[in-house]
């Protein structure tokens, strides 16, 4: 039984369609991510769940209750914004307590709860500070506590980490995940950063132009992209047409017209006859010219030219690949099972 259900949701702004008949369902306590490029409609969907913008058609259910037309304040939904959106005239304590105060809870009662939250987000001793006196990461923790204190049915996070620098992003990302697990909070997280999505989520919905192109666990999304868009967005996949793949020497029996190959699945060998001992029945072996090599830290990226077709190969940056130089002709082996057929979205 799914906890959050989104059924056939569409949204037009004027005559432009921003959400295209989207349906998805989420289990209780699940952490899902809406991943997609800028402008694909992630925020629009999230804000529709929060009741901050209305829908052109479709329905939203939370725990069997239809909330499509409920005002925001009655939805029992917590939200964290990219820009923190803390109230500048209230201190940390008052910001976190705001939701309970609106419920007319007594001060003694909510003080206990606020203190618990302050402890959870690790900001003890900073209760009397104002948002302007906190760092971005601290402000975002306060925003998280403020959203969680009312024990919402769903927690919505709209790119909560985008305004922070890389180091804090990673720590806060882990903390959000820990807190979410501890509270078993059903969470919808929005990001355009694929690494963030892959590390934090139970399940990912990859969005493009108002459609969900693919859904699945991080692993299956990464290793088995179903469309060209997902293949390009989620990794640095080589996307080749069937005809292109055949010029490399492949003899494929497959309906698909388009294939994706992970750059790290391809291996590189010297040109010498005995340069490799790969099984030619399960690998495509062909000659390639090294056009450019780039150091990406622990990985080396080689841009290769195979009979006019560009192919990217990633290899671990170890001393045993240091013989590979720009301009060289080498052999590459592409495992046939790594050529994933892609569906063309309608």
């Amino acid at each position: 039984m799914s906890y959050v259900k989104i059924e056939g949701v569409s949204k037009y702004f004027g005559s432009t369609k921003v959400l295209n008949n989207i349906s998805l369902s989420i289990e209780e306590g699940e952490f899902i991510t809406l991943l997609g490029p800028s402008g694909c409609g992630k925020s629009t969907l999230l804000r529709a769940i929060a009741g901050l913008n209305d829908l052109s058609s479709g329905d939203i259910y939370v725990g069997d209750k239809k909330i499509t037309h409920l005002p925001s304040k009655d939805r029992e939904v917590g939200m964290v914004f990219q820009s923190y959106a803390l109230f500048p005239n209230l201190n940390v304590f008052q910001n976190i307590a705001f939701g309970l105060k609106m419920e007319k809870m007594d001060k003694e009662q909510y003080t206990v709860k606020v203190e618990e939250m302050v402890e959870l987000i690790d900001l003890k001793g900073k209760e009397n500070m104002y948002p302007g006196q906190l760092s971005g990461g601290q402000q975002q923790r306060v925003a998280l506590a403020r959203a969680l204190i009312k024990k919402p049915k769903i927690l919505l996070l709209d790119e909560p980490l985008s305004a922070l620098d890389a180091q804090i992003r990673r720590t806060l990302r882990n903390e959000i995940r820990l807190i979410q697990r501890k509270l078993n909070m059903t969470t919808i997280f929005v990001t355009h950063d694929q690494e963030e999505a892959l590390t934090i989520s139970d399940r990912i919905f990859v969005m493009n132009h108002g459609d969900i192109e693919q859904e699945g666990g991080p692993r299956s999304i990464y290793t088995s992209p179903e469309t060209e868009f997902v293949a390009r967005f989620i990794g640095n996949y080589n996307v080749l047409k069937k005809s292109e793949l055949e010029t490399t020497g492949a003899r494929l029996v497959s309906e698909n017209e388009l294939f994706a190959i992970r750059p790290e699945a391809i291996s590189i060998f010297p040109l010498a006859k005995e340069g490799h001992n790969m099984d030619e029945t399960i690998n495509i072996i062909c000659e390639a010219e090294v056009v450019m090599s780039t150091v990406l830290g622990n990985v080396m990226r080689f841009d290769m030219d195979v009979k006019g077709i560009g192919i990217t190969v990633d290899a671990l940056n170890e001393s045993k690949i240091h013989w590979i130089k720009n301009g060289m002709t080498v052999q590459i082996a592409i495992p046939i099972e790594e050529c994933k057929g892609l569906r063309i979205p309608s």
Partner: peptide
């Protein structure tokens, strides 16, 4: 006055 403040407040139950 930022719109997000109003949005955050309304999600926290404020009229």
């Amino acid at each position: 006055i930022r719109t997000e403040w109003k949005e955050a407040a309304s999600l926290l139950g404020a009229s």
